[in-house]
């Protein structure tokens, strides 16, 4: 229903959702949190997803993040159908291709910044010798080289979120998902975090999806999607509606 003009050739799309629906049963009512969404996101795009609370944007994010499975519809991630994969198969894709940034940072408090950043490499089973360089690179890219041995509680909010960003990019994923990345930060450090994300996206050429209900943050993205009642209400690229 919402066919988007796609300037990129097929096959280079990062994410393709075809008529994806996610239904929850609340009491004896069935609620479509995501309702027949068609969405194609090309590699390297910078997208913001906005919408009021309860609009279904978090559910859409969980679907895109491979943390949840659609009730119906088809999801192609990086060209391959991931609709019927097992938990461990989805975990493998997340491990290698998806970087997460959360509103609440979700750093492990007992681990140093360095070990928090190293965590995805440990989960991917990369040899300890090969990890050190990658961690150094991620810490340098986020300006945290001198904070590597600090525990999260010894860092400011902005620094914590930068640790989380370093953790998200350390595996050099193709897709970074940021869920309200500035929600717990003051304006100053929020701006720093967003600028860092944007510059990393330019350098690494990753696909960046930011979910927010902060309009200032949402407007920075090249493509802005607005979700209302589980459906795409608006899809704007560079100021023009993409759905024509």
């Amino acid at each position: 229903m919402h066919e988007r003009h796609d300037p990129q050739p097929a096959g280079s799309s990062m994410i393709e959702l075809h008529n994806v629906t996610k239904t929850f049963v609340v009491g004896d009512q069935r609620v479509n949190a995501v309702d027949g969404v068609d969405l194609t996101i090309a590699k390297g795009e910078y997208i913001s997803i906005m919408g009021p609370s309860g609009s279904g944007k978090s559910t859409l994010l969980n679907l895109i993040a491979l943390l949840d499975r659609p009730t119906s519809g088809v999801y192609r991630f990086d060209g391959s159908d991931v609709t019927g994969l097992s938990d461990d198969e989805l975990a493998a894709i997340r491990r290698l291709s998806v970087g997460f940034i959360f509103q609440a940072f979700h750093l492990i408090p007992r681990l140093s910044a360095r070990l928090n950043v190293e965590l995805p490499l440990m989960l991917a089973g990369i040899a300890p010798g090969a990890r050190s360089n990658k961690v150094d690179r991620a810490l340098a890219a986020t300006g945290l080289s001198d904070r590597a041995q600090h525990r999260p509680r010894e860092l400011s909010g902005g620094q914590r979120q930068r640790v989380a960003i370093a953790r998200a990019i350390v595996m050099r994923p193709a897709l970074i998902l940021a869920d309200e990345p500035t929600g717990n930060l003051d304006t100053g450090s929020g701006n720093q975090v967003v600028e860092l994300l944007e510059s990393l996206r330019m350098e690494e050429g990753v696909t960046l999806i930011v979910v927010t209900h902060n309009p200032d943050l949402g407007r920075r993205a090249e493509r802005q999607i607005r979700i209302v009642d589980g459906q795409i209400a608006k899809d704007v690229v560079g100021g023009c509606d993409a759905r024509v």
């Binding site: 975990a91 894709i93 290698l96 979700h106 492990i108 965590l119 989960l123």
Partner: peptide
């Protein structure tokens, strides 16, 4: 809980 959720989001296997 949050830590376990994080590990799983980051791609930890069930067996991990």
């Amino acid at each position: 809980r949050a830590e376990i959720g994080l590990l799983k989001a980051l791609g930890a296997r069930l067996s991990d």
